[in-house]
Nucleic acid binder design. Structure first.
Length: 425
RNA sequence: GGAGGAGUGGCAGAGCGGUUGAAUGCACCGGUCUUGAAAACCGGCAUACCGAGAGGUAUCGGGGGUUCGAAUCCCUCCUCCUCCGCCA
């Protein structure tokens, strides 16, 4: 959620930002509507405050008159207060309504894109900021990962369907061990890069989901346990970032670097076709997430650092990758700037998104109320960033496809200490 | 799931219907003193909103109510603690 102050002080920047996100003139009106509502809110508060202040003073007088035994005078004032009270009540009702409306509108405004974000409508307009320098090797007669998984009995999609439904893969044997090896490898890498490991709850309450922006924007994407009003997390970002909800940290606490492995649950309604085959798009997948809470002056440097970090992992895994800067049409609701990593899947001849690294600036911290005391003692909103490092399922798909050969599938060297085997055959 | 107790500032802990946004202690920050430090003393020290400012309003777990007036009384929800039951 953008801050009111930002919107009021940067009306034209806000509108330009929304244009990058392909808002038309009608859509842009939301900004003006917010300003008008806020004016209403201010006027209301001024009036209400004055009325309450008067009531307070009169109430004190009543107290004093009672003490001195002057009942008549006290009762006189009581009538006055009763009148004031009626007025305050209706003002208060107005305030509730105005605030609710304002909040709804604010929640519907996405983050303002960073100046680097190119305009564009879809993922086809994303800007390639780093291409794979070598020619891509297409494996002739290569099998897609779902067939490899079947051939080597790594993933039993049918069993997953029976147990839960489509989109819930069941890993077994070397497939399960490869999955676990990757999780441990990623966590060790993050540890070495200075991230503190977190094992968070996998179910979160609605306050938590709201604070990181999943509610109300992505309500339909999350599994919801209605009976207890809890949501299954779509990413570790949600519980991990919420550790710092309603927290004021000191400037010396920066940088806060957290990592966590969790399964991620996504309903992903509405997708179809070959994109959803195998591990490309599933309801449950494993992911190691990295989260940083950064000083606003340093957050873009931190973003770079996180991009470099993700890149270093892909290099170690020896997978061909490219880095994209998301365009306005593809940029997530809460993000100001996002870099996507895609890995080339040789058998599908397709780039698969395996990581997304974003700076949310104050968009999340405003709702989180995550602040730090600056040198002058004032509270300021911190910046949050996160990235997948990495999303497991698609990495597995890429490893299987890219490393297949006549003798089986070769495990990247860096993983062998974790898998304890070098070849799947 | 059943019975009881409790939720107050960074922490500890008063207040239980009337200048109480909240005593006191600790912690923290600034100053005096000191060669320096400690001690002692003086001052500061919650958050949000409105206001150019003076200042005002709200907040004592959340929400609602009683009252001229609520941290204090009532209702409800949440959380924590103790005991019992169940259980990995």
């Amino acid at each position: 959620m953008l801050t009111l102050k930002y919107i009021r002080d940067h009306i034209s920047e806000a509108k330009n930002g929304l244009r990058i996100r392909n808002y038309n003139d009608d859509g842009l009106q939301i900004i003006d509507e917010i300003v008008v509502l806020d004016d209403k809110r201010k006027a209301n508060q001024t009036e209400l405050d004055a009325s309450l202040a008067e009531m307070k003073i009169l109430s004190k007088e009543i107290g004093n008159y009672y003490k001195s035994g002057n009942k008549e005078k006290a009762d006189n004032i009581k009538e006055k207060v009763a009148l004031l009270k009626e007025g305050s009540k209706s003002l208060e009702q107005d305030r509730h309504m105005i605030e609710q409306e304002l909040e709804d509108k604010l929640l519907s405004v996405p983050n303002i894109p960073h100046a680097l974000v190119p305009s564009g409508n879809s993922d086809e307009d994303n800007e390639e900021v780093q291409a794979w320098p070598k020619p891509l090797e297409v494996i002739k007669d290569g099998l897609p990962h779902w067939e490899l998984a079947k051939k080597y009995n790594l993933i039993d999609f049918d069993a997953g369907v029976k147990i839960a439904g489509s989109g819930f893969p069941l890993f077994r044997g070397k497939g399960a061990r490869l999955e676990r090896a990757l999780i441990n490898f990623f966590l060790d890498e993050a540890f070495n890069a200075g991230y503190e490991e977190i094992i968070p709850p996998l179910l979160v309450n609605s306050d938590t989901a709201k604070a990181t922006g999943q509610l109300p924007d992505k309500e339909g994407q999350m599994y919801h346990c209605e009976r207890d009003d809890l949501y299954l997390i779509p990413t570790a970002e949600v519980p991990v970032t919420n550790i710092y909800r309603n927290v004021i940290i000191s400037e010396s606490d920066f940088p806060i670097k957290l990592t966590g492995y969790t399964p991620c649950f996504r309903r992903e309604a509405g997708s179809y076709g070959s994109d959803v085959k195998g591990l490309n798009r599933v309801h449950q997948f494993d992911k190691v997430e990295i989260v940083q809470i950064a000083h606003p002056d340093r957050s873009y440097q931190v973003l770079k650092e996180m991009v470099n970090y993700v890149e270093s992992i892909l290099i170690k895994l020896e997978l061909p990758y490219r880095i994209l800067r998301l365009c306005g049409g593809d940029l997530g609701f809460t993000s100001a700037l996002t870099y996507d990593f895609e890995v080339y899947s040789a058998a599908q001849d397709k780039w698969l998104e395996v990581s997304s690294v974003s700076n949310f600036e104050t968009f999340q911290t405003n709702r989180l109320k995550l602040r730090y005391k600056d040198t002058s003692g004032k509270n300021q909103l911190a910046h949050t960033l996160n990235g997948s490092a990495l999303a497991l399922a698609r990495i597995v798909a890429a490893i299987l496809e890219n490393n297949q050969g006549p003798n089986g599938i070769n495990i990247p060297e860096v993983l062998v200490p974790y898998t304890k085997f070098e070849l799947i055959n």
